[in-house]
Design a protein around this nucleic acid. Structure first.
Lengths: 217, 217
DNA sequence: GAGCTAATAAGACTAAAGTGGAATAGATTC
DNA sequence: GAATCTATTCCACTTTAGTCTTATTAGCTC
């Protein structure tokens, strides 16, 4: 019996992938989640999970943040990324963040099955056309990811708005809190990321492509 | 008679490419330059240039800035990029900035000649393995590049230091000018880029990968 | 020489950013 | 139930950022 979770915010894609995998892989059991919170809940109540198939663009996820959080809270859970884009820099980052594979959403069902089997067998799976490109990417700084993982949800949101170029006053409006609170969060963010001004925070967020989960893709 | 300029800060590479091209292409005339300033000077005194082969990582160049400046001051000069990296996002940006080709430095001499001939014939030349990746890149905002091209050299340096996360005081120290002058430059930068705070400036610089020319590659 | 722009810089001012406590509420621990 | 911890909230205060004005110097154009 193989146990999977499909984490993706698109219901149609979830069910399509789910039934495709049931046809391709015998004796598979599939749970589904649609955002970062529900994925974390799902992970808590699931024992003996064999693989989490994680979309990068989920609400609350913000590209790498979702993976970083999951890797921090459930370091023993195997994770494979399913993604609509094929940015080689991002592929390199998710692999270094601990993902065991990167499967483009446009792949054929057979390819999904091959990738999943390879990962269950202990391999790291990448699409052929990206293997070379990923090798040539510079190694991301893992310590930065660990620091970002320490941020609280509210601090993460503030960091994302920083990344949008908003003023403290505007961030306060977006989150319906006072400007003083935004400042307090920002000071806390600086401490955790070991930096001392917002520009450096923006650069880190930019490098990790952090963003507040939207409803796209 | 075909007239070329090779702009690269690495003397060994220049001479190697120069002699390789002389062997591959008949009746070719090659000039050389080693940084952005000498390239601009070279362009001024050269008439009827057929192609400029431009390295992105030259002193004073800062990835895209060199190309942007050249496209602004010499819009009629055909430019092909030669680069050590093969970042598909950057390839898309240089093409949209008006480059007519992107030749990886690791290419064979025959490939260089093919690329140059294709460009001289009016084509846009890209390496086979990048064509598909470039297509899928989002279109960069051309207007931003035009705005950055309006910056003076000193303003450009200030923008680069902003991008490093430095305070005005620190930038003043680095450039040996007063903090008041730094502020004046920053205000001018905001006007030209049509933004209103330093975070947005950093994001633009980050997107264009602006940087003060180093002696690497 | 008149007019233009880039670069420099000072003073004075407004707005924004950032730091140090400190209070509250919820969860956990003992 | 008391103690502890953390996330969140906020005020008071200092520092930094950014604008406006004015002014000097140098180079370039016509």
């Amino acid at each position: 019996m193989i146990s999977l979770i499909i984490a993706d915010d698109h219901p149609l894609f979830r069910s399509a992938l789910s039934s495709a995998l049931r046809a391709e892989i015998q004796g598979v059991e599939i749970a589904e989640s649609q955002d970062l919170d529900s994925t974390l809940q799902c992970l808590e109540k699931t024992d003996d999970l064999d693989l989490l198939l994680l979309d990068l663009n989920m609400p609350g996820s913000g590209e790498l943040y979702g993976l970083i959080r999951i890797r921090k809270d459930f370091p023993d859970v195997p994770v494979a990324i399913i993604s609509g884009s094929e940015d080689s820099a991002m592929v390199a980052k998710v692999i270094d963040a601990g993902a065991l594979g990167f499967i483009p959403k446009t792949s054929e069902p057979v390819t999904y099955a091959q990738a999943i089997n390879a990962i269950l067998a202990g391999d790291i799976w990448l699409p052929e056309n990206l293997k070379q490109a990923v090798e040539s990417q510079p190694k991301p700084d893992l310590s930065v990811q660990n620091k970002v993982a320490e941020l609280t949800p509210q601090q993460y949101k503030v960091l994302c708005y920083l990344h949008e170029g908003l003023l403290n006053k505007q961030i306060a409006f977006e989150l319906s809190i006072s400007e003083a609170t935004v400042k307090a969060h920002i000071t806390a963010i600086f401490r955790k990321l070991e930096i001392n001004n917002r520009t450096q925070a923006v650069l880190i967020a930019s490098d990790l492509k952090l963003q507040i989960g939207r409803i796209d893709s």
